[in-house]
């Protein structure tokens, strides 16, 4: 499994989105998020975007007040994951128009929807913004 989890955390360390691709109990999730947030949020912009944590790597990137963190296997391509994060942000941007923390808070299901289109089972399956957003647009039209 390439990607193990995707976390969106704000500057205060509050989780805004959490998607796990392997089952974890609530306690495990809570502990993991706490550890990673502590590790990543203390880092400065000059430091690199890769943090080793337990037996995997966390690739993270900060956009405004939000940290996008992706937990991956050790042999995963770090730069590709950074590109993935960027793609995710661009996709959200295109949909919400200048995406901000509130958009994700109040439209969590849409954010999840985008992720579902992009990643399945920890594998990236879709990298075209149009394709990712197509089902959401259909849904919006229907409702």
């Amino acid at each position: 499994m390439g990607i193990r989890f995707i976390l969106l955390v704000n500057k205060q360390g509050q989780t805004r989105l959490a998607q796990y691709y392997e089952y974890m109990t609530l306690e495990e999730c809570r502990a993991l998020e706490g550890e990673i947030v502590r590790k990543c949020l203390t880092r400065t912009d000059q430091q690199c975007s890769f943090v080793e944590h337990r037996n995997y790597k966390v690739v993270y990137r900060r956009y405004a007040s939000l940290f996008f963190m992706v937990g991956v296997d050790n042999d995963e391509n770090e730069l590709a994951i950074l590109e993935f994060i960027h793609l995710l942000v661009e996709t959200m941007d295109r949909h919400f128009g200048n995406v901000c923390e509130l958009d994700i808070m109040f439209h969590l299901e849409k954010a999840h929807f985008m992720l579902e289109e992009m990643v399945m089972n920890g594998c990236i399956v879709e990298t075209s913004k149009a394709n990712i957003l197509h089902p959401i647009q259909l849904m919006d039209k229907a409702s």
Partner: peptide
């Protein structure tokens, strides 16, 4: 190509 991409992902794992 998306199907190739997904399949390669599966084989990679």
């Amino acid at each position: 190509q998306r199907i190739v991409s997904a399949t390669v992902g599966v084989f990679c794992e």
